[in-house]
Nucleic acid binder design. Sequence first.
RNA 1: GCGCCCGUAGCUCAGCUGGAUAGAGCAACGGACUUCUAAUCCGUAGGCCACAGGUUCGAAUCCUGUCGGGCGCACCA
Length: 583
Amino acid sequence: MNIFDTFTGALKAIVCGLENDGRLPKDMDLKNVTIEPPREATHGDIATNIAMVLTRQARMKPRDIADMVAAGLRDVDGVERVDVAGPGFINIILKRQLIQSQVAAILNAGGNYGRSKIGGHEKVNVEYVSVNPTGPLHVGHCRGAIFGDALASLLDYTGYDVTREYYINDAGGQIDTLARSAYLRYREALGADIGKIPEGLYPGDYLIPVGKALAEKFGRRWLEADESEWLHDIRQFSTDAMMDLIRSDLDTLSIRHDVFFSELTLHKSGKIQAALDKLEDKGLIYTGVLEAPKGTRPDDWEERPQTLFKSTDFGDDVDRAVKKSDGSWTYFAADVAYHNDKVERGFTSLIDVWGADHGGYVKRVEAVVKALTDNRVNFDARLCQMVRLLRDGTPVKMSKRSGAFITMRDIVNEVGRDVVRFIMLTRKNDASLDFDFARVTEQSKDNPVFYVQYAHARVHSVLRKADIAFPGINLSVASLADADMTIFSDSSELSLIRNMMNWPRFVEAAALAREPHRISYYLYELASEFHAMWNKGNDNLDLRFIIEDDRAKTLSRLALISAVAGIIMAGLDILGVEPVTEM
RNA sequence: GCGCCCGUAGCUCAGCUGGAUAGAGCAACGGACUUCUAAUCCGUAGGCCACAGGUUCGAAUCCUGUCGGGCGCACCA
């Protein structure tokens, strides 16, 4: 299927043969061998560094190894020529026919071209968003939400068994604050004058409907009641209301989690104690006194004995407290139980997507997963850097105190879901990102969303035109895949095909690196190649997609660009962006 | 003070986990519209990959140190 896989196999067989003939020592390690298109197209279609990698192992000169391997490669099907160059690179030039035939292969594979099995059905848990249920999602949450979602799709596309999960922090003190804020709105709904929202409570308008709903459901029974009477019920009620709000916010971005996991259930079920018992059994829990942090020393610092987890045994900087001074569990203790629960549900790879401000939290969770699983389960925290909102080049100021922050919904309403999703995936997750309202809605090549969408739309525009130029022309996959591919000879055509041959490699690399932004970059490049070829048709009529008096050639060209559209569609699908057919 | 992330063209950033002569876009300059939507394309110019060592056939990429920027640093979540 994938040409690079084919040659990986061929190379292994050749090395094996040389080992058996005694021309190479036994058991060569091919781990660092690469098989990839050379950066310089003039060097050929596929290059491998195998000779240099084996030099030391085999105690032979790279050129000598290269010559032996090259001889073997010349017998592989579809190989036109094999050169040895530079320090010992082996460059493979493929028969043009093999390259041309890839178009049919891509079309026949449909949306599965590029789909990979490297995941091997490994159970991966991707946890993302996990915002405290105390209000609507704002911009800061946006990036992590989209990144996590696209990463999950990418892993799914590459053969992992993915669960998308949201951890609801519904057990902490901020939920009491939420309940008190909602209670205020409840009294307001019943006509009480609540005045200004006191410092420390949530001032946002989004709690007004919650207050109304409370009034509707419970009437006036809590109007003058003591907090102890209503706190429990209102906590529950407003948490549910906030989660509904958040779910609906996420829905505007087409983000849907498989599992919403409540922190509260960990407290109620005794799972925290159970998880800590597990650590206790390993001798990793003890009572001790931590040193004061260097640098900014808290004013109210005091030395006191605490229940600690020995995370320093697993690479953390200091041991971490699992109990507060009042004897209740820390947030971290619940997180120990939560990650333990994921492990017990059978996941062998845990990915948590957090904001960069949680960077200091990574090592302790890493430590706990190692400790709980004896290093058998992999934990990977992916941190998303800040997004800077710009309007006309100047940063948008936001103040949480006044409640004047821009919500995720605001942004989606203003620029659209597809734009938000794509732009958030145009940067590496650990680099900060500028989101400029003016630029992201611009209809020009400066705007990658538009540029890629436009390429896809252009293909469909041509297909529509073709249907007019050749009434009844059969544009089904089968018909297109059956077209004559041998007409592709122009550099723009061959380069486009070579680019498409790279798609499966990019997908796999992106999945292994857990970097969905690479998909965006690939799509931009593919779109660029396509636009270039389109324009070449302006100067050279013979390079147009629709050739008025040549139905067969037209069909071939349509096959080529349909393959392009198919890959764009698959790529956009991973990113969660809708491919448009008309603009 | 410690930990994590970052430093690549004037600007914003890629760089396929160590490969051959470091790439895009914007901005600048010069070209292509009786068109399959020029919403695009082609060309020119622009670099001590922060700095200094190290590892090896080979380093923007890995290691160490320095400088500069961001984030975080008992019981919060």
